[in-house]
Design a protein around this nucleic acid. Structure first.
Lengths: 216, 216
DNA sequence: GTTATCTGACAATACATATTGTCAATTCTG
DNA sequence: CAGAATTGACAATATGTATTGTCAGATAAC
C-alpha cells in the first residue's frame, strides 16, 4: 500500500532519488568550491553553479550554508575514517602495524585528493559552535582509530589525561598534515608517516604507562 | 627644528600620544570582545563601544577589521613569547628544565587570562591568507622557544623533517591547550604540562636522533 | 574671549549576499 | 495531445554591516 504511492518519475527517477542526487551534487560541488576559495569565500550562488543547479535546490536540501558545510565535512570524513579503519584492521593485531597502516592511508588520501583534504583540515575550523562540535566529534573518532581506547571505562582524572593525550596526538598529526599539504607534499608519504607515528607512539606508550599506576 | 613642530596638547597629550592611546584601547577592547563573541561575531561598532571610542577612531588606526585582529594577536603573542623565553632562560641550560619552564608559563597564563587565550588559540584560524601567515610565523617562534633549533642550518630533506617535527609538537601543545581551556581547566597546570611535555620530547629526541644519521 | 582644533554622536551611503518569490519552459502521465 | 508536476532562470526582498560624511559641542592656545 504505502509503496504504491510513488511520485512521478523524471529521468527514470523517483522524487526522492532526484532529491538525493541533487543533494549529492551539491555536496560534491561544495567540496570543489571550498577547495578553491574556502568556505568563507564560497557563496551559495557559486556552489549552485558548480553543481549545475539553482538556489532553489540548495534550500531544498539544506537549511543554510553551514548545514552544507557540515554535510560536506561528514561526507569527506566518513569515507576517510571507514578506509582508515579497514586499513588498520587489515594490518593485523600489532598496534604499531595498525598505526602505520592507518596513517599511511590517511596521508596517501590527502595527497590524492587535495580539495577534500582542505575541507577536512582547514575550512572546518572556527565557523560556529555547531560546526566545531561536529569537528570535535570527528577528531575523537580519528583518535580512536589511531589509538583504540582501552575497554574498561575510566574515571575523572585518568579519563581526562587519556583524552588530552589523544587530543594532542591528533593535533600533531593534523598540524603535520596541514603543513605537508600546504607546501605541496615536499616529503614522501612514508617519511611523513614516520614523523607522525612518533607523536602517536607517545600517546600509546604514555597511556600504557599511566595504566600501570606510576611504575617505572 | 623638527621637534618644535609639536601638535596641540589635549589632556596633556601629544596628537601622536593620543592616537597611540586610542590604538591601544581598541586592541584591548578587541581582545575583550573577541573573547566574548569571537572575531566573526565582533562588529566594528561593538569594539568601538567597548573601547569607548567611535568608529572614526577605528579607521584612524586600522585599515579594516582584519588589521585589528592581527594587531591584537601580535599583542597577545608578543607578551606571551617574551615571558616564555624569559622563563626558559631563567631555568638554566638543561633542555628538559627549560621546556618545563616554558610550558608551565604558557599554561599558567592561559588559565589566568582566558580571553587573550581564546584570541591566541581559536579566533586566529581561517580568517584569511594574510592572517594565516601571521599565525604561522607566531607558531614557528613558539616552536623555537620550546625546542631551540640547532645552530647549523640544515638542507632540504633534513630541514623539512625538522620543521614537521616542530609543527607537530606545536600542534599537539595547542590542541591540548584548546581542549583544556574550553573545558575550563579540569586538570592542574602541572599535569597538563607533563602531558604536553611528552609530545615536545618526541620532537627533541627525534631531532637529536636524526642528527646522528640513523644510529640506534 | 575668540578662534582653530579636536571630539563624539549619529546619519547617509555603499555593498554584498542570503533567502524568497515569480513565471515561462520542459518533462512526464494518462 | 492535454494537463499537471517539475524545473531553471532570474527578479525582488531582506538584512546586516562596513565605511564615509556631517555637525554641534567641547577643549585648548593665544
Amino acid at each position: 500500500m504505502a509503496s504504491s504511492r510513488k511520485a512521478r518519475l523524471y529521468g527514470g527517477m523517483d522524487a526522492e532519488e532526484r532529491r538525493a542526487e541533487r543533494r549529492l551534487k551539491l555536496i560534491d560541488a561544495a567540496i570543489e568550491v571550498y577547495g578553491e576559495v574556502g568556505y568563507r569565500g564560497a557563496t551559495v550562488k557559486a556552489i549552485c553553479e558548480a553543481a549545475e543547479l539553482t538556489e532553489r535546490y540548495f534550500y531544498e536540501s539544506f537549511a543554510n550554508s553551514e548545514a552544507l558545510l557540515i554535510a560536506a565535512y561528514n561526507h569527506v570524513v566518513g569515507h576517510l575514517h571507514e578506509e582508515m579503519t579497514a586499513a588498520a584492521v587489515a594490518a593485523g593485531d600489532d598496534a604499531e602495524m595498525r598505526l602505520r597502516a592507518a596513517l599511511t592511508l590517511y596521508f596517501t588520501r590527502l595527497k590524492e585528493h587535495p580539495k577534500p583534504a582542505r575541507v577536512f583540515l582547514l575550512e572546518i575550523s572556527g565557523i560556529s559552535p555547531a560546526v566545531d562540535a561536529v569537528k570535535l566529534d570527528a577528531l575523537r573518532v580519528f583518535g580512536d582509530i589511531l589509538v583504540p581506547p582501552t575497554s574498561e571505562p575510566k574515571q575523572g582524572e585518568k579519563a581526562g589525561a587519556a583524552t588530552l593525550l589523544s587530543i594532542g596526538m591528533v593535533g600533531a598529526v593534523i598540524s603535520i598534515a596541514l603543513r605537508w599539504v600546504s607546501k605541496q607534499y615536499p616529503q614522501a608519504v612514508e617519511d611523513v608517516v614516520a614523523i607522525a607515528a612518533g607523536f602517536c607512539r607517545v600517546a600509546l606508550t604514555e597511556a600504557d604507562r599511566r595504566r600501570g599506576l606510576h611504575l617505572p
